[in-house]
C-alpha cells in the first residue's frame, strides 16, 4: 500500500508530465517519462503500471485529467493547463469568486481607490526618506 504522502507526490509528478505533454499519454508512456533522466524530482524506484493507473484514476475523480476510453490502451490528458488552474486559484484568492474566501486568510484584501491614494502618498514619503 502506498502512503498518502507518496500519492500526493505521484499526483504532482504525473500532472507535471501531462501538463508539459502536447499529446495524450497512456499509463505506460507516463511511467516511462517519469523514469527519464533529467527530471528534477523522480520516484526513488521504478513504478508499477498499476500504481500509475491508481494515481491517474484519483486525478480523474478530482477532475484534473480526462481519460480517452476509445483507444487501447486508454490515454490521459490534463483537463486544463497549469496556467488556467493557477489563474482560477488566484481569482479565488483575490476575491473574484463570491463567497470563496472563507477558507483562507490573506495578507491584504483589495484596496479601495481612496486607500490607494493614501498608500501612494505614504510610499512616496517612505522612498524619499530612504534616499
Amino acid at each position: 500500500m502506498l502512503r498518502m504522502a507518496n500519492l500526493g507526490v505521484l499526483e504532482r509528478l504525473l500532472m507535471d508530465v501531462l501538463w508539459d505533454s502536447p499529446t495524450p499519454l497512456s499509463a505506460n508512456d507516463l511511467k516511462d517519462s517519469l523514469m527519464r533522466p533529467g527530471l528534477a524530482t523522480k520516484p526513488t524506484k521504478p513504478l508499477a503500471t498499476t500504481t500509475v493507473l491508481t494515481v491517474l484514476s484519483r486525478l480523474e475523480t478530482k477532475g484534473f485529467v480526462t481519460r480517452d476510453r476509445s483507444v487501447r490502451p486508454h490515454t490521459y490528458t490534463a483537463v486544463m493547463t497549469r496556467a488556467t488552474h493557477t489563474a482560477e486559484l488566484m481569482h479565488e484568492v483575490l476575491g473574484q469568486v463570491p463567497d470563496r474566501q472563507a477558507a483562507l486568510v490573506r495578507f491584504i484584501g483589495g484596496v479601495t481607490p481612496q486607500e490607494a491614494d493614501t498608500l501612494r502618498q505614504l510610499l512616496g514619503v517612505a522612498t524619499t526618506d530612504n534616499l
Binding site: A83, A87, H91, L94, G95, Q96, I108, G109, G110, V111, T112, P113, Q114, E115, T118, L119, L122
Partner: peptide, 22 residues
C-alpha cells in the same frame, strides 16, 4: 497578467482594511 487571463479583474473591496493598518 498581460492578457493571460480572459476574465477581468474586478475591484472587490467596499471596506477599508488596508490604510488603517499602514
Amino acid at each position: 497578467s498581460d492578457g493571460e487571463s480572459d476574465e477581468p479583474w474586478i475591484s472587490s473591496p467596499e471596506r477599508a482594511l488596508v490604510a488603517p493598518r499602514v
